[in-house]
Simulated scan of single mutants.
Amino acid sequence: ATDFNLVVQDIAATADTLRKLPECTGKVAAIGYCLGGRLAYMAAGNGSVDAAVSYYGGGIHTQLDLADKIKQPILFHYGELDHGIPLDQVGQVKERFAGRDNADVYIYPGADHGFNCSVRASYNQNASVLAHGRTLSFLAEHL
């Protein structure tokens, strides 16, 4: 029963609040995992964040109409073996962002959904470390 538009409005309000804090340099990124990955994508689509990182964001392939609205940097992480987000869906995202210098899509061989969560059976240390490093580099560059 989640109203995704209301959640994205909440993310926008949160980003606005963060920008007003003295600790903030003025730029805010959204990082999300699974459903949160989809919400980070949607927040980028409505322009409320300066950068977005989506870890195995499900359902993005059904919202590719937002892709043209995303002008800020965005980073996608997907597991090769994720049965909830099959490679054909990842391919749709990759194709939609192909040739754009503001988007990178990474697919991690041998990794499943939730590969970054160390308390899950699907945890993949190699994929997690690589994705984490890429995320930190991305944020350092764009924030």
Rank of each mutant, 00 (worst) to 15 (best):
G110A: 09
Q72G: 06
V93M: 05
T25G: 10
H61F: 15
A43K: 00
V8W: 08
D68N: 12
Y106K: 08
G133S: 10
N126Y: 10
I74M: 04
Y108R: 01
D101W: 14
N126H: 10
M42E: 04
L136C: 14
I107P: 04
I11A: 04
V93P: 13
Y78I: 13
A29V: 12
S137H: 14
Y55V: 01
G110E: 12
K27W: 01
D112K: 12
T2E: 11
V49T: 00
T62G: 13
V8I: 15
A67R: 05
P109E: 04
V93F: 07
H77W: 08
T62W: 08
P73R: 00
D16Q: 06
P86S: 06
A43G: 00
A43Y: 01
K20S: 14
L18P: 09
Q63R: 09
N5S: 10
K20G: 10
N116S: 07
M42H: 11
S122T: 08
D16W: 15
Y78D: 09
Q125S: 10
V53I: 03
L64T: 01
P109G: 03
G36V: 02
R19V: 09
V90L: 09
A15S: 12
K71C: 09
S48P: 01
D88A: 03
D104G: 08
V49P: 00
F76E: 05
S118T: 07
D101L: 14
A67Y: 02
L21I: 12
T2N: 12
A52M: 02
A127K: 00
D101M: 15
G58H: 14
L87N: 06
E141D: 12
Y33S: 02
D3T: 11
F115T: 03
L75Q: 02
T25D: 10
E80P: 03
E141V: 10
T135V: 03
Y56Q: 02
H77Y: 03
L64H: 05
G84P: 11
A67M: 06
D3N: 13
E23V: 02
H113R: 08
D101R: 09
S122F: 05
P86F: 10
L75R: 03
R19F: 05
H132S: 08
S48E: 02
I85E: 06
D68E: 07
G58S: 08
T2V: 09
Y123M: 01
V119P: 01
A15C: 08
I31A: 01
L66K: 10
D82R: 07
T62Q: 15
A103K: 02
R19P: 13
G79W: 02
F4V: 07
A98K: 07
Y41A: 04
A52H: 00
V28A: 14
R96W: 11
R38I: 06
N5R: 13
A103V: 08
S137N: 14
V8C: 05
G37R: 01
Y106P: 02
Y55F: 04
K20F: 13
L39R: 05
A13V: 07
I85A: 10
Q92W: 09
L143S: 14
V119S: 05
L39Q: 04
D101S: 11
A51D: 00
K94R: 10
H142T: 02
V90K: 08
Y33R: 06
K94A: 15
